[in-house]
Design a protein around this nucleic acid. Structure first.
Lengths: 140, 140
DNA sequence: CCGTATCCACCTGGATACTG
DNA sequence: CAGTATCCAGGTGGATACGG
């Protein structure tokens, strides 16, 4: 098998495609990569990962940082990330109680790959928006 | 501003965090990066991008390639990607008519960044699954 | 302060049927 | 072959109220 894991350029898209093609031998829906991608492809997971990558936060600190998340979805998303081993939850038994959320080692390992996608998004969102307007997606 | 766009290691997560933190000055919901991520964070977009990265495909060819996508969602997702300028649609006026979908330049530019995330997923899905089971996510 | 519980609107996405 | 139209189930996510 090609040792793709050693390569890390921005140019070897073909290698990723190769690996991707090779990774699905059985039913497409059983692909473990898809399971993982589906998990983080919700509305808040990636955003929480990046926010916690800056520094650990408390529950209400996260609410202030991300004003448009509801209490329910914050708690729910954090529990999901905790279950997947990406986020650690530490309770300090003070009064009033405080809970700190931080990235685990696994969580931190995701920041760089996710960062590549974010960098792509930040560099190309203008073109995407322009294309969308050109296709009449806003007025139509 | 730090010239982050020139760097491309797997180790400089801190740089991505920096850039991310710097990119949101106003309301978090207005962040253009989030707009883009939200768009591709649906059930099929990333999968279609990676499939079309292998080679251009026709409509029913994509259906065969991704057996668990419905006709409706395939058409809908392709239209979305087309509007965003990631996928090109070319109609051949033969009989019966055939339509070929392929990645645009913009679409191809996304394959490598997305590939980083996919590689991370393929390398860590076992740990994630294990963590999930440890938290009793399957039996509970 | 840190959640959980409930209810509900909306949207995603699937099944089916139909058209050029 | 390549779609569109319609209907419908289920999940996502928000508002509000309540508990530890």
């Amino acid at each position: 098998m090609t040792d793709i894991t050693r390569r890390d350029g921005a140019d070897d898209a073909a290698i990723f495609v190769e690996r991707w093609a090779a990774s699905r031998g059985g039913p497409a829906s059983a692909c473990p990569v898809r399971q993982v991608l589906d998990k983080i492809s919700d509305k808040w997971s990636m955003l929480l990962i990046m926010t916690l990558a800056e520094s650990p936060r408390r529950f209400n600190s996260l609410r202030r940082e991300i004003p448009d998340i509801s209490q329910k979805m914050l708690a729910q998303s954090l529990r999901g990330l905790e279950q997947d081993g990406l986020v650690a939850r530490q309770v300090f038994d003070t009064k009033p109680p405080s809970v700190e959320y931080s990235l685990t080692g696994l969580g931190h390992s995701m920041v760089a790959p996710l960062g590549h996608l974010i960098r792509w998004a930040s560099e190309n969102h203008a073109e995407i928006t322009a294309s969308r307007r050109a296709h009449g997606a806003d007025s139509e």
